[in-house]
Amino acid sequence: MNRFINYTTIIIFGLVFVMPLVWVFVTSISPANEVIRGGNPFWTWNPTFENYVDAWEAAPFLRYYFNTLVIVFGILGVQLITITLAAYAFARFEFPGKNVLFILFLLQLMIQPEILLFPNYQVMSELGLVDTKLAVMLPFWASAFGVFLLRQTFKQVPYELDEASKMDGSKWCQTLRHVYIPAAKPTYIAFSLVSISTHWSNFMWPLIITDSVENRPLTVGIALFAQSYETGAQWGMVSAGTVMVILPLLIAFFIFQKQFVSSFMHSGIK
C-alpha cells in the first residue's frame, strides 16, 4: 500500500515534469489559429512545419548555431589543455606555495565568472574585446572545477607507470599522453559533457558582452527573438524557435544518456 501510494505520487510528478516539454513540441507544430482558440493543448490534428519555417526566416538561427558551436568548442578546447597541465602539476609535483595556489584555484569555484558580470565587462572593455566571441570564451578558459576533477584522477595513476615511462626516456608530454590522459578518459568525457551543456546554456554573460548577430550565441538570439513576438498569436513561432535551441541538447542527451547521467554524478563526487 505504502509502495503503491509512493509510486503513484512519483508517476504523477513525472507526468507534471514531462508536460511542459510535450506542450512546447505540440505548440510548435500547431497552426497559429489553433493555439489561440485553445483546443487540446497536447494534441493537434493539423500538424505543420510552418512555424519552423517562419522562425528560421525571421531570425538568423544558422548564424547563431555557428556562433554557439564556435564558443562552446572554443571554450572546451582550451579548457582541456589548461586543466590537463594544472592537474598534472597539482597531482604529481611538490613545490613551494602549492597550498596557497590550490586555494587560489579553489576561489573560482565560489566566485564563478558568471557572478562577475559587471567587473568582467570592464576588463573586456579595457582589453578592447567587447562584442567578440573571444570575450565570451575568455573567462572560462581556466576551470578550477576541471582541474580538481582531473587532479583526483591523475592521483590514482600508479607512480610506477609514471617512472617506467620516464625510464624509457619519454619526455613529460609523452608521459602525459601515453600514461595519464588514457587513464583519465572517463573524467575527460564527464568534464566535456558538463562543460558543453553549461556553455551552450550560458546567457547573461553573452547577453552583456555581445552586441551583434556575428557574435551572439543561440541563447541570446532566442531571447531577443522571443521578446519581439510576445503576443499569443506568435506562440507557435516562438515555440518552434525554442525547440530549435533545445533540440540538439535533447538529442545529444538521449543518445548519450548513460554518459550524461554518470558524468553529472561523477562531477559531484569530490
Binding site: 597541465l85 576561489l107 565568472p113 562577475l116 581556466a142 582541474v147
Partner: peptide
C-alpha cells in the same frame, strides 16, 4: 604547468 590556468584566473577572477 600552472601558468596558463593562472593567467586566466588572474585576469577574469582575481583582478
Amino acid at each position: 604547468l600552472l601558468l596558463p590556468s593562472f593567467i586566466f584566473l588572474a585576469l577574469f577572477t582575481f583582478y
